[in-house]
Design a protein around this nucleic acid. Structure first.
Lengths: 247, 247
DNA sequence: CGGTCGATTCGTCCGGCGTCGAACTATTGC
DNA sequence: GCAATAGTTCGACGCCGGACGAATCGACCG
């Protein structure tokens, strides 16, 4: 709490590319398995395991064992906070080139987050589904203090959102199929460009799959950005009342 | 602004003990010479020089040459922000020693934050200025939901606080000079030991400079804590109606 | 114009950390 | 039980980066 704090300890944890990628992947608020994080970080499973251990011991992430998988999540809202500041500070690229800024804009507009939609598109879709009564619950917006301090175990996991029967009908009519399995129907994710919830879980995946299958969006190569097609812009506006530029 | 941000670059800069000490020393808002920083970091001058170069190239600090000395300072308020968060997150060393706890108490009472006052002193000064009508606006007290979740982009920036004309008179009578420039007159900062606002911006700096010039407070060596002198305790009580122990 | 003082550059040494393959543990499912 | 899957531990390798001393640069001062 003073001058001889070991900033370097935390700094050391942030200093590695693989760990940095892991943290950024987790900064969506989701719980992710060790293998998936290894893949996301671009390292082998043993290497990722070592990183995850360090991050856990350093308190930056927390782990929950379920079956033979171990699910990792951010250590709390303070960690989320630091990462957000750090990302803001990170681009030491002084003058944002046109390329970089358009790419950033693309990411803000629409991107995939694990297996669901994020960015303005993801947030808008979730808002629309709430407005139309396809989802209910989720009385509170994202509250970092409660999520991080009062009940850290639920950080980024499904809260009280639920799919209504009309929501189920809506998905059926849309032709979006729920993947099935024991995975929760509805989860939320904290969108780090919009700072609001977007939709995850089976429903999130179904909607993203549908958006891809219907040609509404295309995965851009190289990063997580999605391109909204002209057809997509029309379809999204018709279906969700959401106006987003194509391109 | 996306998944391939180089968190690790910034992390790497924070990962070293010597650099961490340098940054913490600079986080008091002072400009310090290279030799002094070497001493503060506990390394030789050549080593410190290398660190300072890296930090400068990384944008975390900035340098000003004057005569044969070079004076270093933090790269900006964004850097300060990150450091503050990081320090909050950092303490994996639980305070056990008496030394540490008294030092922590000193920091809670009064410290410098970038270039303004923080701790009980900083928070009290701001409250006093609000109570006496020297500042207006800021309709709400610190509201973590609004500040942290709904509009994180304004976190720590000026909101609706404004300096009133009587506030300006107050500063004139006190003999505190506003530094001038395009920097906003009033900003606020969320105080991490008091969880309330304290005063930043030009006014914050002017008050801190005045407190130092008038001998109300002295910079403690080694960290950001400020010592409140007996005269200071009296002056602060008279001026702001704020009772704080000297020592 | 030498003398000094502050700061940086250079060369070198050394410790630590990230990396992976292979082996080991644990849980699930047939 | 045996095979399959998820994850961790172990050992060895390689490389990066921090440390310092000596030398160099540059500014100030008599």
């Amino acid at each position: 709490m003073n001058g001889d704090v070991d900033l370097s300890r935390v700094g050391g944890l942030l200093a590695d590319r693989a760990r940095s990628r892991i943290l950024i992947a987790l900064s969506s608020g989701r719980e992710l398995s060790a293998s998936l994080l290894a893949q996301e970080a671009g390292v082998s499973r043993p290497t990722a395991s070592a990183h995850l251990k360090k991050l856990t011991e350093g308190g930056l992430i927390a782990v929950r064992a379920e079956g033979k998988s171990r699910y990792y999540r951010l250590g709390g809202s303070a960690v989320f906070d630091v990462l957000e500041r750090l990302m803001e500070l990170a681009p030491p690229e002084p003058i944002t080139s046109l390329r970089a800024s358009t790419r950033a804009a693309q990411l803000r507009r629409a991107r995939s987050c694990y297996d669901h939609l994020a960015g303005q598109l993801g947030v808008g879709v979730m808002r629309s589904m709430l407005d139309r009564g396809f989802l209910c619950g989720g009385d509170g917006r994202y509250d970092p203090d409660r999520a991080g301090a009062d009940r850290p175990s639920e950080y980024g996991r499904e809260v009280d959102y639920q799919l209504t029967s009309s929501g189920r009908d809506f998905l059926d009519n849309l032709g979006a199929c729920l993947p099935g399995g024991r995975r929760p129907l509805v989860r939320y994710c904290v969108d780090w460009t919009e700072t609001r919830h977007h939709l995850a879980g089976q429903v999130g995946r179904a909607l993203r799959d549908h958006a891809l299958a219907a040609g509404w969006v295309e995965q851009r190569p190289g990063n997580r950005a999605l391109r909204i097609t002209p057809d997509g812009a029309a379809g999204i506006q018709e279906t969700f009342g959401l106006v987003l530029e194509a391109g």
